[in-house]
Amino acid sequence: MTGDALLVVDDLHAFYGRAHILHGVSLSVAAGEVVALMGRNGAGKSTTLRAIMGLVEDRRGRITFAGQDISRLSPHRIARLGLGYVPEDRRIFAGLTVLENLEVGRRPPRPDAPAWTVERLFDLFPNLAEMRNRPGGRMSGGEQQMLTIARTLMGNPRLILLDEPSEGLAPRIVEMMADAIATVKREGLAVLLCEQSLPFAGLVADRAVVIALGSVRHTGWMGDLMADEGARQAYLAV
């Protein structure tokens, strides 16, 4: 699997000040694959994504993306290589309109990734089309979640790091999110998805990586994890 993997994380450590948060996380995502990074609250899912993106200052280990070592690059360089990041708290620019938010994310198209335009993204998230000039600060949580994904897609990434897209959203919106993830996967995009909700991950993911206390505990097919009562109890039950 690592042979043709797009993203390979090998023995990743991360620190906040003196706190050692990640203790050697290893995982990989192949082109076009959706991998769910699962684990309880505080397990280190978000920290893993932030460390891959170069947003955790103190990180060690090897991270390669499309064959290139990105473990020492700054966030904007990592993003320009085609790695998109959707943070869990959305981080919409509140004073910028929907169109302006999208503009910040815009990067030139690349040959090896699906090319997005504002209009295509409005097809993917029709709600956004009706509020092009509304400031991000005056949108509902669900609308903001759509906008933050659309904004990252404007960068025409090959892989997106998607942090808990279903958190705190109404069931109808969660369904839309699952559809959207399925759509971008069909376009050929790879996704590394942080999730706590097993049903949601089960809908969209091919494989699952389970972490607890900053270490990987389990790697396998999503379907096997869904079926494995013991593993679910051990790593995911609240």
């Binding site: 966030p75 904007h76 320009r80 990041y85 981080r91 620019f93 509140a94 910028l96 910040v104 990067r107």
Partner: peptide, 15 residues
Amino acid sequence: RAATEDREMTAALGV
């Protein structure tokens, strides 16, 4: 304006 609001997010979008 984006960087004024959130420098980290702006960087993560490739700016």
